[in-house]
Design a protein around this nucleic acid. Sequence first.
DNA 1: TTTGCATCGTTGATATAACAACTATTGTCT
DNA 2: AGACAATAGTTGTTATATCAACGATGCAAA
Lengths: 153, 153
Amino acid sequence: MQLNEFLKITELLDVLSGRLSASLNRLLNRKFKEAGLDISSEQWLVLLSLWNKDKVTQQVISDQTAKDKASITRLLDILSKHDLIERRPSSTDRRINLVHLTERGKELESKAMEIVRETFNQATSGITENELIFTREIVCRLLNNLSIQPTVN
Amino acid sequence: MQLNEFLKITELLDVLSGRLSASLNRLLNRKFKEAGLDISSEQWLVLLSLWNKDKVTQQVISDQTAKDKASITRLLDILSKHDLIERRPSSTDRRINLVHLTERGKELESKAMEIVRETFNQATSGITENELIFTREIVCRLLNNLSIQPTVN
DNA sequence: TTTGCATCGTTGATATAACAACTATTGTCT
DNA sequence: AGACAATAGTTGTTATATCAACGATGCAAA
């Protein structure tokens, strides 16, 4: 039995198994709800992409969030129903939609990000910036090694 | 401080958003399928717990996998249907089931873990043991910070 | 120009996740 | 013993993720 390999598995299981992200998402979802914001952490991730750059195709959102096209379709369905985004067909390419933030969608940013900041501060309390940067570096390398996308587009 | 907070968010987003675990799970699922193993990465996580310690209650599995009791119920339904585990009512406490691995469930271990080892090796290629241990340490602290919430079960 | 392929988005099927409400037990306290 | 809380597991609902298949459109090569 290879001790090394077993070590790697157990050492990383909590990250890789999604325990950490699940905890964060649970917490975020509860805080959004408490604050009366009717969004999930997944919806927030989509909005984050749009707050960064608006009026993009669904494919772009899919790439930036690393979520499947089909997931984006359904997330946008909900966001649209809640009047946070709008799909507008492109005039030049009839295959694509450009996703626009509505006023409500734009207004949501400050409140939502305040909650996110608070949650991330809680998560990283007692951890130094250097430690975070180092961790991020390792995570990037892990991601590159795994480099696998959702269903090929 | 604004800048610091923003840094924390962007630095950690890939871990916390679940991008990493999603990538790993996608890859694991594909490899299991390619190898003809009819299990998902989530089911594997449950089996891992059982391979480590058999004949435990569903609650124990729930705790060890950090998954909701309801999720465990449904994962075990599938594993049971595929004849990998068996629920046996306890003779001393009629509330609980003891989850037993079947012969098929036991036999699956070597094949499945071979694939997992291979995948984890791929993920951690070029990363030293010390780096992994350090990362694990930070992840533990992040987890602790997140799970101290009063609203958590 | 037509044929064939790539791209964008949707839909269907199935699995998973979280929460809440529920049943059936067991344990505890008085 | 009886009341009541705690525990184990299930089920219903809603949201999400993945994969596969599909229709519509655009593009490029023969």
